[in-house]
Structure formats: C-alpha cells, structure tokens
C-alpha cells in the first residue's frame, strides 16, 4: 500500500511545471477578461465598504478604515482567486474536460498534476492580490515597497486555499457541493479573520478559534506589512500557513488516487 502511494506522489521538483505551463497557455488566451473578472469583486468591496462604511467608522487601529480594509481585501482576493481557480477550473480539468486523464497517460503522476495546479492557482492569487495592492498604492494607502513585502504571503495564501479547495474537489461528486464550502467556510472566514473589522472586536472565546483559521494568519502578515508596522509572531503565522498547505495537499492526492486510479 505504501508503495502505491509513493507511486502517485510528485516525481521530482520540476515535473509540475509542464502542468503550470499548460494552464498558463490556456489563461493567456483569455487573460484580459480573466484579470477584469478577478478585480471587479474585491474592488467593489473595497470602495463600497471603504468609502461608505469608512465615513461612519472613522479610524481603525490608528489608520483610515479604507487603508485597514485594503490589506484585508488583498488577503481575501488571494483566497478567493485560488479557491475559485481550483473549485471550478481545476475541477473541470479533472472531471468533464478529462485533461488530468490525458496527463496521467504521460510521464507525470497525480502528485505532479496536483502540485502544478496548486502553484498555478497561487500564481493567479499573486496576480489578483498584487493588483488590489497596486490600487491601494495608487490611492496612497500603502507604499510600493510594502506591496513587494506582501507578495510572498499572498503566494502562500494562494497555496493554502488552493490546497484546501483541492480537498473539496477531490471529495465533491459535482459542482453543486462547492456552495457549501463557499457559504459555510469561506464567507464566515472573511468576517471572522479581521478582514473587515479587527478580531479584537470578537468575543474572547471566538478569538482563540479564529487563531486556528488560515485567513487570520494571512491577514496578520499582510496588514502590518502594508501599513509598515512590525509583524508579531511572523514565524508562527508562516508555519501555520505551511501546515494548511502541506496537509491538504497530501490528503487530496490520497483521495484523488481512490477516485481516479482505482
């Protein structure tokens, strides 16, 4: 049994690149529409909540509300773009389009495919998260250098949520089940993890629970970087995000193996 699991793991450090390049080629054909589509939602939230709610809220944690929110939106857009790329596009490649089936008849293993899909989804997160960051810089809510600092965290956030979504698609019989993940896991996380208001506003017991959620760790890394403040317990946050990437990665491969390679 152990031998057969080893046989489906990534072959080496570079085989996944062929999968990433396949997705990049497909994306290039629809790049403009894809970028606009990915930006519309977070920008609407940023301006709607930032200007509208910002008038009522005033300053939060020593900064304007829109600057506070911008950091949360960078993390959220990284989360949603990796999630949606995996839930819908990767699921289609695994299921209806039979792209994975074609790849599995080559030198690549299931692990190579999953790794390629994760890095691809994280790449789209970097694009989406950085784009929001650039808007924030343009409006004067962050500096160019701070965006550079946030990029590794944006990429890691993308890996985390691609990896988690990979578990969802490995288990889901069809698209219909994704809505549970979106409404019961992702949407509550946006409100609990300090995206739109500080977690200190939550009841004490909730704050402990929130410390377990991956988006909270992303926000705690991205916001201080964008507001040019020191990051508390950076190692802990990075370690937590790494755990949230690695464990679901292996879990999803194990489930995919049962589903696709019986």
């Amino acid at each position: 049994m152990g031998e057969s699991y080893a046989a489906v793991m990534p072959t080496n450090a570079y085989n996944w690149i062929a999968v990433w390049r396949r997705n990049f080629l497909a994306w290039k054909k629809v790049a403009l529409a894809s970028i606009l589509g990915n930006l519309a939602d977070p920008l609407t939230n940023l301006f709607g909540l930032g200007f509208g709610l910002g008038l009522i809220v005033g300053r939060v944690e020593g900064t304007s509300y829109i600057a506070f929110l911008a950091a949360g939106m960078v993390a959220t857009s990284a989360m949603t773009s990796a999630t949606f790329e995996t839930l819908y596009a990767a699921f289609a490649r695994m299921d209806a389009k039979r792209t994975w089936e074609a790849i599995l008849s080559t030198e690549l293993t299931l692990g190579d495919i999953v790794l390629g899909e994760l890095v691809w989804a994280a790449s789209k997160s970097v694009l989406a998260g950085t784009a929001i960051g650039i808007v924030a810089v343009t409006l004067g809510y962050a500096s160019w250098l701070s965006i550079l600092y946030t990029m590794p965290t944006i990429a890691l956030t993308g890996l985390v949520f691609a990896s988690l979504a990979m578990v969802v698609i490995s288990l889901a019989p069809s698209y219909d089940y994704f809505v549970f993940y979106q409404t019961l896991v992702l949407s509550p996380m946006v409100f609990l993890c300090g995206v739109v208001f500080p977690t200190s506003q939550l009841p004490g017991s909730f704050q402990h629970f929130v410390g377990l959620l991956p988006l909270a760790h992303s926000v705690d890394l991205i916001r201080p970087a964008m507001l040019e403040r020191g990051v508390d317990s950076a190692v802990l946050h990075v370690a937590a995000l790494c755990v949230y990437t690695v464990l679901p990665f292996f879990a999803s491969i194990a489930v995919f193996r049962r589903r696709l390679l019986r």
Binding site: A18, R22, L25, A26, K97, R98, A102, L108
Partner: peptide, 23 residues
C-alpha cells in the same frame, strides 16, 4: 483513450507542444 481528451481551446500544434512537455 476511448474518449477524446484533447485541449479544445488549443490549436493542433499547441496540443502537441503541451503534450510533449508532459514527457
């Protein structure tokens, strides 16, 4: 395979290119 699993949005040439990279 029994069912075609070509890349429908890609050209003929791109299909061969992408597949060669898998090897």
């Amino acid at each position: 395979p029994q069912f075609d699993n070509l890349e429908l949005e890609f050209t003929v040439r791109e299909n061969l290119l992408v597949f060669g990279r898998y090897f």
